[in-house]
Simulated scan of single mutants.
Amino acid sequence: MTGAPLPQQVALPGLPSAISICEVGPRDGLQNEKSIMPVDVKLEFIRRLVAAGHRLIEVTSLVHPRWVPQLADAEQLIGALERQPGVRYPVLVPNLRGYRRAAELGLTDIAIFGSATETFARRNLNRGVEESLAMFEPVVAAARADGGRVRAYLSMCFGDPWEGPVPLDQVVGVAVRMMDMGCDELSLGDTIGVATPGHVAALIGWLAAAGVGADRLAVHFHDTYGQALANTLTALGQGITVVDASAGGLGGCPYARSATGNLATEDLLWQLAGLGIDTGVDLTAVVETSRWMAQQLGRPSPSRVVRALTGDAAG
């Protein structure tokens, strides 16, 4: 594939002229794979994403390998990573021990991951919401003291497979407490993909009323019901300029079986190209990267744009 065709560009009013994509494929994408990718493959994946123009790539997670064995090679990967100027390589850390490991490896660009619901907090972090927040406070304080940057993820913002619908005020309450710790950005997670546009607009509005504006938010949509692009477009219309996506639509959540893949980076890029919204990321290069990764995984890419542009059932 030498060059992807692009959609005809027709802008919509009220949308940003440029956004940032947080590429989560190497971490959120691969953590849910049954097979464990060799570290050399992961490094090549990251190298290709950087070459495609990505400037924000979440590379791994410093959690105990018992919980996420697919990322047990985190320290080896970070040690071998050829960091390029102008590219951020945040890592997910669960606690202060994880942060100290990251800092020893020269990384202070981190992410913490909380839950808006009690059940998922206990399944994902083995502690409740209050205990989780208490665990995050020293992590954020340490990173800020070191001049680092902290991204906060908040899972189950739109629905929980065990608790059902999640009240907006419940989500806002946890979100505000995470941001009050000193986090730079909050990524709103539709972990099981049940959000719809009205719900997205309402939550962003409620957060703004509580003092957390769109300039401090990102969105992280899973495409379980095919709503990720619609939800993203709604979020952009509400002032959001950071969108999480995963090359080839890789991903899920090992602790929420109903969570399917993330919004595919290629599908997002196609829509943004048609809207005239700049990302700095090359669609052709990402498609080729995802096709390559699909071959490593031995299955087709779920991304519709990858399939359309390659004309290849193998992704």
Rank of each mutant, 00 (worst) to 15 (best):
S20P: 00
I21P: 10
I21G: 07
I21H: 12
I21A: 13
C22T: 10
C22R: 11
C22N: 08
E23I: 05
E23S: 12
V24L: 04
P26T: 03
G29R: 13
L30M: 07
L30N: 05
Q31C: 03
Q31A: 08
N32L: 06
N32V: 15
K34V: 06
S35F: 12
I36W: 01
I36A: 01
M37R: 00
M37G: 00
P38T: 01
V39I: 11
D40W: 01
V41W: 00
V41M: 10
L43A: 07
E44D: 12
E44H: 06
F45L: 15
I46E: 00
I46T: 00
R48P: 03
R48F: 05
V50K: 02
V50T: 10
A51G: 03
A51L: 08
A52K: 06
G53Q: 05
H54P: 00
R55T: 15
R55N: 11
L56S: 10
I57Y: 09
E58L: 03
T60L: 10
L62N: 05
V63R: 03
H64A: 13
H64G: 02
R66I: 06
W67D: 13
D73Y: 08
D73V: 12
D73I: 07
A74N: 09
E75H: 12
E75V: 14
A80Y: 01
A80L: 04
E82A: 11
E82W: 07
E82P: 01
R83S: 13
Q84W: 09
P85L: 09
P85R: 09
G86A: 06
R88D: 13
R88T: 07
R88G: 04
P90A: 01
P90C: 00
P90F: 08
V91S: 12
L92W: 08
L92I: 05
V93H: 04
P94K: 08
P94R: 03
P94Y: 04
N95V: 05
R97C: 02
R97P: 00
R97Y: 09
Y99E: 12
Y99N: 06
R100F: 01
E104S: 14
L105H: 09
G106V: 01
L107H: 11
L107F: 15
L107I: 15
L107D: 14
T108G: 04
D109I: 00
D109E: 14
I110T: 02
I110R: 06
I110G: 05
I112R: 05
I112E: 14
G114H: 01
G114D: 03
A116C: 11
T119N: 08
T119G: 01
T119F: 11
F120I: 14
F120E: 08
A121S: 15
R122P: 05
R122W: 06
R122L: 15
R123T: 06
N124T: 05
N124Y: 06
R127P: 12
R127G: 03
G128E: 06
G128S: 10
V129K: 13
V129A: 14
V129P: 08
V129M: 14
E130P: 09
E130T: 11
E130W: 01
E130N: 15
E131I: 07
E131N: 05
S132R: 04
L133C: 01
A134G: 02
A134T: 09
M135E: 10
M135Y: 00
F136C: 11
F136I: 02
F136D: 06
F136W: 13
E137P: 01
P138F: 00
P138C: 02
